[in-house]
Amino acid sequence: MKLARAYQIPRSKLLGREPREVTVFEYDDADRLVRAITVREPEWLEEDRDWALADLDDQASRCPNGCGMPLEDTTHPDNEGAYVADEPPRCHACAAVTAKKKAVGDPTDLIFTVRKVR
């Protein structure tokens, strides 16, 4: 569901479903085409909507401050002191960009890039 959310497409489409399309042609007595009516299945099935609503409920039930864990667990009084934060890893590429920004005064009109040299 995370991928479907990122691309804003129905889950069923991500799984390979393409809506069916049927065209019915109507002819008059002289066998001339009078009209063509095309009927297409909906892009979002009821099942897709159910998945999307469940995903929204799941997202709403998680901590919005960064950890993303279920609030039902993280806010329960029995869990006070039950969590330990891991040491954050350092991105050495970002560290090089940060150092370069400090060295040039961090002007807003420069675009900083980084490359690996060894």
Rank of each mutant, 00 (worst) to 15 (best):
P64M: 09
D29M: 04
A82V: 01
L33V: 07
Y7F: 08
V24W: 07
L15D: 06
P89C: 06
Q59R: 12
V84P: 04
R20G: 03
R62N: 06
M1Q: 00
L15C: 01
M1S: 05
A82Q: 04
N79T: 09
G105R: 02
G81D: 00
T113K: 15
V114E: 14
V104Q: 15
V97N: 00
V84E: 12
T98S: 08
P64Y: 14
Y7M: 03
V97G: 06
G105D: 09
R35S: 14
A36T: 02
T75I: 00
V84L: 12
V22M: 01
A60Y: 02
H92N: 02
R35G: 06
D57Q: 12
L56K: 11
A30C: 10
C63E: 05
R49I: 14
E43T: 07
R32G: 05
D57P: 06
I9P: 01
T23Q: 08
L53V: 13
F25E: 08
R35W: 04
D50E: 14
V84N: 08
V104W: 05
P77N: 08
E80V: 06
L15M: 09
N79D: 01
T75P: 00
A4Q: 01
K101L: 03
A103R: 06
C94Y: 04
T23V: 10
Q8A: 11
K2R: 10
E87Q: 13
A85R: 13
R5S: 05
P42G: 08
E41A: 12
A30F: 10
F25N: 05
L110V: 12
A36I: 01
V117E: 11
D29K: 15
H92Q: 12
R17N: 02
A6S: 00
D29I: 05
T23W: 07
V34I: 13
G81Y: 04
P19F: 09
D57T: 04
A54F: 07
V84Q: 13
L56I: 02
K102W: 05
A54V: 03
R35I: 03
V117R: 15
D50L: 12
Q59I: 15
G105A: 07
L110M: 07
D73L: 13
E87F: 03
A93T: 07
D86N: 04
P89K: 06
R20D: 00
R20K: 08
Q8I: 05
M1W: 05
H76C: 02
K100W: 12
M1N: 08
C67E: 06
K2H: 12
E18T: 01
G68W: 11
N65P: 04
G68M: 02
P42Q: 13
R115F: 14
N65G: 08
L45T: 15
D50V: 10
A82G: 06
R62S: 08
P10Q: 02
W44F: 14
R90D: 11
R17E: 01
R40L: 06
P88A: 14
V84F: 11
A30N: 13
G66Y: 07
R90Q: 14
C67T: 02
R40Q: 10
R20T: 05
P89Q: 10
L33Y: 04
V117Y: 15
C63N: 03
D73A: 03
R90I: 15
L110Q: 06
E26N: 11
V114N: 13
A6N: 00
